[in-house]
Structure formats: C-alpha cells, structure tokens
Simulated scan of single mutants.
Amino acid sequence: MRTVHIIEQAQTPTPVNVVGEAITILAGGDLSKPFEMHIQEGVQGGGPPPHFHPWDEAFYVVAGEVEVTVAGTSTTVSAGGYVHIPGGAIHAYKNLSPTAKMIGVVSDPRGGQFFAAVDRLRVPEDLPRILEIAAAHGVTFLL
C-alpha cells in the first residue's frame, strides 16, 4: 500500500556506489510508485556510457555541469537546468565540472533496484557481472 513518505535530513539513506557515482535512493519501489527519486553525485568525467531502458528518466542539475547526450545530440546542462529522457532513448551523461550533483527521477522501480544491485562493483573487473545485472533490470549498455 502506498503511503506518505517523508525522509528527515538525519534519516537520509546511505548512498550506494555505482561505478564511482554516489547515488542516494530517496524513494523507490512500491513505496513511491509511479516514480523514484535519487540524488546522484559524481566527479569530473564520471557518468554512465550510452544505454537505454524502457522507462522515462529526468534529471535536475543541482550543482556543476553535466553533458547529457540523447539520441546522439549532446547538451551541456548547468545548475538549475533540467532534462527529460523518454523511455527507450539511447542516452548518457558525463560530469564536466570537478563535482556534479543531480536529482534524478525515474518512472520504474528497476532504476533504483539496478543501482542497489551494482553497489561497490568496479570496472573493468566486475563489468561482466554489471552487464548481467543491467540486463536483468531492463538496462542495455552500448559498449
């Protein structure tokens, strides 16, 4: 059953480490259907390679600059900027500034489930396992 979901600052969940990106899953799964909310923080050059999944995704850049590429078109999004990516669109992002922070919203619980499942796995040594987990959660990476 869905209920009101409130997280006070002292109760913020511990971030998971997704290949160098710290991702805090604030709302996910059945608790917050039909969307999830994450805080994503990374360092310069960080971010996922081109990939796609069946759910919509949106980012609001809180700090820094991020290059977002959707369907081959790249745009630099600075703090205060927003981007929406439709489900099925091939996309990637790369942090351009020394640090970047975004609020991410996805329309399927598999997003947060994927992040939690790959917590602390590393590239290149864990890449086969990461790709296996991705496929199981509906994410396809184009390497």
Rank of each mutant, 00 (worst) to 15 (best):
V16K: 12
M37T: 13
A63R: 14
G81C: 06
T73N: 11
M1G: 14
L26R: 12
F52H: 14
H84D: 02
H84I: 00
I133T: 12
P54S: 11
G104N: 10
A92F: 01
I6F: 06
L31A: 15
F141N: 14
T73D: 10
H53N: 13
E65V: 00
L143S: 09
A22Y: 01
L31V: 10
P49M: 13
A134N: 15
A27W: 05
E65C: 01
T12F: 06
V18Q: 03
E41S: 13
T12K: 15
P109N: 08
D126T: 06
F35N: 08
H38C: 00
E8P: 00
I25C: 12
P13I: 05
L96A: 03
I23K: 02
L142D: 14
G111Q: 02
G80P: 07
T69E: 14
E8G: 03
L142V: 14
Q113D: 07
A71L: 04
V43S: 13
A134D: 14
I85Q: 03
G28N: 13
F35C: 04
S32H: 11
V70Y: 07
I6M: 09
Y60D: 08
P48H: 13
D126Y: 07
A63P: 02
N95K: 00
V16P: 00
R122D: 02
V123I: 15
H51Q: 15
E41N: 09
N17W: 01
N95E: 02
T140A: 14
F114N: 01
V105R: 07
P124Y: 08
L31G: 13
Y60L: 14
A71F: 06
R2S: 06
F141D: 11
H53E: 12
L31R: 15
H38G: 01
P98R: 10
F59C: 03
T69F: 02
R129D: 08
M37Y: 07
I25R: 13
Q44T: 01
L31M: 14
P34H: 11
D30A: 12
L143K: 13
A134V: 10
V43H: 12
T75F: 03
A92R: 15
M102W: 02
I39Y: 03
E36T: 11
D108S: 12
H38R: 09
P49L: 13
I6K: 10
M1C: 10
M37E: 09
Q11R: 13
A100W: 02
H5A: 08
T140F: 02
A58E: 09
L131V: 08
L142F: 09
G42E: 06
I133P: 04
Q44H: 01
G88T: 05
P34N: 11
L121D: 04
A71N: 15
A58S: 15
Q113N: 10
L142Q: 15
V4M: 11
V43F: 04
V106D: 03
P13V: 02
E21I: 01
T75C: 05
D126M: 03
L143Y: 15
D30H: 11
V106L: 03
T14W: 00
F114W: 02
H5N: 12
G104F: 00
H84S: 10
T75D: 09
Q9T: 07
P50M: 09
G42H: 08
A63K: 15
P128T: 10
H38Q: 09
R122L: 05
L31D: 15
H84G: 04
